[in-house]
Simulated scan of single mutants.
Amino acid sequence: MAAPGQNLAVVVHRAGDLRLENRPIPEPGPNEVLLRMHSVGICGSDVHYWQHGRIGSFVVRSPMVLGHEAAGTVLRVGPGVTHLKPGDRVAIEPGVPREMDEFCKSGRYNLSPSIFFCATPPDDGNLCHYYKHNASYCYKLPDNVTFEEGALIEPLSVGIHACRRAGVTLGSKVFVSGSGPIGLVTVLVAKMMGAATVVVTDLSAPRLQKAKEVGADITIQVTKESSQEVASRVEALLGCKPEITVECTGVEACIQAGIYATRSGGTLVLVGLGAELVTVPMVNAAAREVDIRGIFRYCNTWPMAIALLASKRIDVRPLVTHRFPLERALEAFETTRRGEGVKVMLKCDPTDQNP
């Protein structure tokens, strides 16, 4: 257990330099709560900051605590907090607007340029024993929702936001490109929203098997086919072109395949982030009126996600394939970097290592 006044944290200093170190326990200010962290998932972005020291224009310039897929227990509340109390179990929404700008007023606060986001430079994340957060973005968990399910609301929210932007509805035929954690939650959400058939592609046979487990109807293991050949395989197995494609890899060839595969008049949602500039068949998309939409994280999804988990309409528990205590975080990050399993979960409370 951490000694009094110590706060073990996973900190990236620069590309390739990841450390476990103690930091002071923070004090909650107005409208903040101090949390004892319980479960924190490792995201691909955490690994990317460790390996490369940056994601696009977000550059690690000073030591930064990683972690943003998280749930924990309220220890103390700051002035003005009335909806939470010590002992409450909560899931953390990591993006908090710093000001009420035009995007917040329109309900799209995720697009605010002034947003605080856990583990995005210069803001620290919550992969530590103790963490303080804006109380308005901490959501109480029902008794039948575990800490790990609470932590998985963050990636689940990406799937919810993507499927909303795509317009998934009863009877939709959906193509999901990529069966990593985000592809898998997209499958879960699409099926819950009424998709009749979901086809998933990936390079990895084990990940496609996991996609089957969570509800995918058709899986396709791709190898070295061209993007048009992949699109043809999707159409052949589905029996038609899908109305909706959700691209979760960010790989140029996969974006191309998504455009070719999507039915005329359909929608392609770009979730995965890759190179800033990619070559795509834009004239093909334009001539066939394929709408191309992006998403940036999520907004207004935590209450819906909690309701779905509490009602057991969605089961995210199969996504967790590895668990490590916080003290073995470096090993956990290596496991994620090697692409083993699906979701690696770090257990931050030494007194409670349960899900």
Score class of each variant (00 low, 15 high):
Val60Asp: 00
Pro206Leu: 01
Arg288Met: 05
Phe116Val: 15
Lys132Pro: 12
Thr336Asn: 13
Leu111Ser: 03
Val320Gly: 08
Pro155Asn: 07
Arg165Gln: 15
Glu252Ser: 04
Gly258Leu: 02
Gly72Phe: 10
Glu99Thr: 11
Glu229Cys: 02
Glu93Asp: 11
Pro181Ile: 08
Gly53Cys: 12
Gly239Ser: 10
Ala231Trp: 08
Val246Ala: 03
Ala275Arg: 15
Ala162Thr: 01
Pro181Ala: 15
Glu99Leu: 14
Leu184Gly: 02
Glu93Pro: 06
Leu188Phe: 07
Leu34Val: 07
Val214Asp: 02
Val189Cys: 09
Phe296Gln: 04
Pro181Lys: 01
Thr321Tyr: 03
Val158Glu: 01
Ser106Val: 03
Gly159Leu: 02
Ile115Ser: 11
Glu235Tyr: 04
Gly159Thr: 08
Ala332Arg: 05
Glu102Gly: 00
Val77Tyr: 10
Arg337Gly: 07
Pro97Val: 01
Val246His: 06
Ala261Phe: 13
Pro86Gln: 06
Tyr131Gly: 04
Val176Ser: 02
Leu268Pro: 03
Pro28Gln: 05
Ile92Met: 08
Ser114Glu: 13
Gly56Val: 04
Cys163Leu: 06
Gln6Gly: 01
Val290Phe: 06
Thr245Trp: 05
Pro94Asp: 05
Val174Glu: 05
Glu102Asn: 06
Ala329Cys: 13
Asn31Lys: 14
Gly159Gln: 11
His13Ser: 07
Cys128Trp: 07
Lys347Tyr: 03
Leu270Thr: 00
Leu20Lys: 12
Tyr130Val: 12
Met37Leu: 15
Ser39His: 12
Arg19His: 13
Lys312Trp: 04
Thr73Phe: 07
Gly56Arg: 02
Cys163Asn: 15
Arg108Cys: 01
Val10Lys: 07
Val11Arg: 07
Val59Trp: 00
Gly16Ile: 11
Glu289Ser: 13
